[in-house]
Amino acid sequence: MSAATGPSGSGPAVAGLLLAAGGGRRLGGRPKALLPAGPAGRPLVERAAGVLRAAGCAPVHVVLGAAEEAVRAGARLAGCVPVSNPDWESGMGSSLRAGLASLEPTAAAAVVVLLVDQPRVGPAAVARVVAAYAAGGAELAAATYDGVRGHPVLLGRPRWPEAAAGATGDRGARDVLASAARRGELALVECGDVAAPDDVDTPADLALLDEPRAGWH
Rank of each mutant, 00 (worst) to 15 (best):
R26Y: 02
H61P: 01
G24Y: 02
A49N: 11
L96R: 00
R171P: 00
G147E: 07
R53E: 12
V113I: 15
L52I: 04
P123E: 15
V111R: 07
A15L: 03
E185H: 04
A167L: 10
A207P: 00
A143N: 07
W160C: 09
E104V: 14
R72S: 03
R213G: 04
A48M: 15
A40R: 14
C80Y: 10
D170L: 02
R25L: 10
D198K: 04
G65I: 07
V111S: 04
E162V: 12
S94T: 14
V176D: 02
S8R: 14
A131K: 10
A131C: 05
A15G: 06
G137E: 09
R157A: 14
G156D: 08
L100H: 02
S10M: 04
K32T: 10
D170P: 02
A143Q: 08
A196I: 00
G22I: 00
P123S: 14
A214W: 05
H151Y: 15
V111K: 05
A195R: 01
A33V: 02
A125K: 04
E69S: 15
T168G: 07
D146E: 15
V14C: 00
G147K: 06
A165S: 13
P197C: 07
A163V: 01
P197Y: 07
C191Y: 07
L27G: 01
P203E: 10
G166H: 14
P86C: 09
Y145Q: 02
A207S: 14
A75Q: 08
G156I: 13
R30S: 10
L44E: 04
A141C: 14
V71C: 05
L35Q: 12
R159M: 14
A142M: 06
G93P: 11
L186P: 03
D210A: 15
K32G: 06
A55T: 05
G169L: 07
A75W: 09
W88L: 10
V45L: 03
R30F: 02
A110H: 10
L18R: 00
S8C: 11
G79I: 03
G74D: 15
E46T: 05
P203M: 08
D198N: 12
A109I: 07
A55Q: 04
V153I: 15
P43E: 06
E185F: 00
V148T: 13
S8A: 15
G93H: 06
R171Q: 10
A187T: 01
L103G: 03
A125M: 05
G137M: 08
L52H: 03
A40N: 03
G99C: 02
L100R: 01
R47P: 06
A167T: 06
A125E: 01
S90C: 05
E89P: 02
G147W: 08
Q118V: 14
P123T: 12
L35E: 12
R183T: 00
E46A: 01
P158F: 13
E68C: 06
V71A: 09
T5P: 00
A181H: 10
V62C: 06
R128Y: 10
G150D: 13
L18I: 00
P203H: 11
E89Y: 12
L52R: 01
S10R: 12
D201H: 07
A195W: 01
R159N: 08
G147I: 08
A138G: 11
D201I: 12
L103N: 04
R53P: 05
A131G: 07
L115G: 01
L27D: 00
D210R: 15
D205H: 11
A73C: 00
R120A: 13
